[in-house]
């Protein structure tokens, strides 16, 4: 098999230097031939450390909505094709099934990507799970030593109109809360505040509902949506 697919060709496929025809041939062979698949995988693993050197970028606003739209668009088209051979009621049902399937697909991908993004991020110095008054987890906070704070909402909060979520922390347990920023989009986001000391264990984090534009006093004024104490992850 080595004669059929030389090592150098495998390397060129992995680097992206091989021609389209060669790449297609090797990838197709890998589906049928376990030896080619193993060699291709080994070559990929050799270079994969270079993927880790790519910058970690925040997900753009609206990314998931656009992805969901695309997945939903794709599936009803298949249902519509089926409608030509089945009756209308069934076609309609299938379209709904299609839409539901698209939604599930988007949800599954989002879950996978969230895990993926977390795996790719630098290890946080602290992690806090924020709980609401009923003890339900509403947000996950991951604080980096430079106070870049990733806020992952675990529930979509029921915010009144004209209110925005503001994230706070207390770097000094006996001091005043400091704003880490606003979740303007109403979605999970990464916030950056310069000039704060590195976060530590037992540091308080909370999210409050503040008037649009943020708290007028620069201290929490609105109802607490969730709060929790940070812990240092065991890595």
């Amino acid at each position: 098999m080595t004669g059929q697919v030389p090592d150098i060709l495998i390397d060129e496929v992995v680097l992206g230097l091989a021609s389209d025809a060669d790449t297609a041939r090797v990838e197709e062979l890998a589906l049928r031939d376990a030896d080619v698949a193993r060699r291709l995988e080994q070559a990929r693993l050799r270079f994969m450390a270079l993927d880790d050197t790519a910058p970690v970028l925040p997900i753009p606003l609206g990314f998931w909505d656009r992805l969901r739209d695309r997945l939903e668009d794709a599936t009803p088209a298949q249902a519509a094709r089926a409608a030509r051979v089945v009756d209308l009621a069934r076609a309609r049902l299938r379209r709904w099934q299609g839409a539901a399937f698209g939604g599930m697909a988007a949800a599954a991908l989002m879950a996978a990507m969230l895990g993926w993004t977390l795996l790719q991020s630098p290890e946080p110095a602290v992690v806090a799970v924020l709980l609401d008054a009923d003890g339900e987890a509403v947000a996950l906070i991951e604080g980096q030593p430079d106070n870049t704070t990733r806020v992952t909402l675990l529930e979509r909060p029921d915010l009144p109109a004209g209110r925005v979520m503001q994230v706070w922390t207390k770097p000094d347990a006996d001091g005043l809360p400091v704003s880490l920023g606003l979740l303007v989009s109403g979605r999970s986001d990464t916030l950056t505040v310069p000039g704060l000391p590195a976060p530590g264990a037992s540091q308080l984090y909370e999210i409050t509902a503040e008037p649009d534009g943020g708290s007028p006093t620069n201290l929490p004024t609105g109802p607490i949506l969730g709060k929790g104490l940070a812990k240092e992850p065991v890595i």
């Binding site: 376990a34 698949a37 193993r38 291709l40 997945l71």
Partner: peptide, 21 residues
């Protein structure tokens, strides 16, 4: 890529390589 990954998920065989790769 994510749409392709979703559509081709049935092709993924973890015996032949990592999901990440």
């Amino acid at each position: 890529a994510l749409v392709l990954i979703w559509r081709r998920s049935h092709q993924f065989d973890d015996m032949r390589g990592s999901a990440r790769g």
